Amino acid sequence: MKYREIEPNGFLNNFVKCFWFYETTTEIQHTILPDGYFDFIAEFENDNLTTVKLTGIWTKPKEIQISKNTKLLAIRFKLLAIEYIFKKEIKSILDATVNLSFSFWNIDKYKSDEFERFITEISNNLDTSIKHLKQIDNRKLKLFDFVYEQKIKTVAEISKKVFWSSRQINRYFQTQFGIRLKEFLNIVRCNATYEEISNGNLNPNAEYFDQAHFIKEIKKYTGVTPKELSQNKNDRFLQLSKMDEA
C-alpha cells in the first residue's frame, strides 16, 4: 500500500483538509473510521477510471473492499465545502456514498499517475470558484476553525464565541449534515486520538474523563478498543495505516 497527502495553501484550507493518493497492488480490506470530513474520490483499476464518488460523513466504521491494482485520486473536504463549493446538503448520504459522473470536474481527463496535475488544476479551479462566491458567513468560518483545531470543546462555548445560538447551530448541522454539532465534536475528538493510538499510546488525553470513558468513546466510533486499533493487523484501519505511510 502506498499513500500520500498534500495540504492546500491559503484560503482554500478552510474548505479542503488535503489532497490524497492511495495505491494497492493486492486486494485488501480496510475499515474506514469516522474522522469529521467527507471525501471526493476517483477510483482507477488497472489504470482505467471505474468510479467517481462523494462520501458522506462517517459516524460509524465502514468496511470496504479494494481490488488489486487500484489507485485513488481524492480530496478530503472540511464540512464547510459542502455548502459553498458543492452548494448542496450532505445529510442524504450520511454514512453512505453517491456516484458522480466521470465528467464531474473533468476527472475523466486525468490518468491514475497524475496526482500532481490533479492537485494543481483542481486547486486552481476551487480557488477560482471560491473567489466568485457571495460573502461567506463569518460565523461558519470561525465555527469550523474552532472545531477542527479543537480550540473550543463544547457547543455552548462555540455558541458564545461565534455569536450564534446553540439551537440555530444544531438546526444548521441537522439540515446540512444530518448530525448534531455535539456528535460532530465527539467524532473530531476521536479522530484526534488516532495518531497517538497508532504510536502505542493507549492512555486517554485530557479530553476524556478517564480510561473507561476513553475506551467507551473510541469503541463507539471505531467498533473496537484502543488496543485493537493500535495493533492494526493487516492494515485493517486505513487512517492508522496512512499515518505509517505518510
Rank of each mutant, 00 (worst) to 15 (best):
K140N: 11
T97S: 03
T55Y: 01
E89K: 11
L126T: 01
L79F: 06
K78P: 07
I119N: 00
K60C: 04
F115S: 00
I82Y: 01
L126N: 02
I119D: 00
F104L: 04
I130E: 06
F104A: 02
F163Y: 08
F104Q: 01
L80T: 09
D127N: 15
E114G: 01
A74G: 14
I82G: 01
V98T: 15
K151W: 06
Y172C: 11
I75F: 02
L143R: 04
E157W: 04
Y148N: 09
K161N: 15
F102K: 13
I57A: 03
I169D: 06
K151Q: 14
N138K: 13
T55C: 04
D127M: 12
L94P: 08
V98S: 06
L72Y: 15
E89R: 04
K88M: 09
L100F: 14
N106V: 10
I158L: 13
R139Y: 12
S166C: 10
N99V: 02
F104M: 03
E43S: 12
K71Q: 01
S165M: 09
E114T: 05
I85G: 03
L80V: 09
N48P: 00
K91G: 05
K160M: 08
Q168I: 07
K131Y: 08
E89I: 06
D113C: 06
F118L: 01
N46W: 06
I130H: 04
N170E: 04
E157P: 04
I66R: 11
T128Y: 15
L72N: 13
I64S: 02
R171T: 11
A42F: 06
E45W: 13
S159P: 13
Y84M: 14
E116M: 05
S101W: 00
F104G: 03
K60R: 13
T70V: 10
I90P: 03
G36E: 01
I64P: 01
Q135G: 09
L94Q: 10
A74E: 00
T51M: 08
K131W: 05
N69P: 09
K88F: 03
R76G: 13
L141F: 08
S67Q: 12
I82L: 12
E157R: 14
N48H: 05
N124R: 14
Q150E: 09
T55A: 02
N138G: 05
I93S: 04
E157N: 12
W58Y: 13
F118D: 02
K78L: 09
I169L: 11
K71C: 00
I82N: 02
I57H: 08
K60W: 02
W105A: 11
T50L: 06
D137F: 09
F118H: 05
V98R: 01
K131M: 06
D35H: 05
I82M: 14
I66L: 12
L94A: 10
W164S: 05
I122E: 06
S159Q: 07
I75E: 02
S123A: 07
I152H: 03
W58G: 08
D137Q: 10
L79Q: 07
G36L: 01
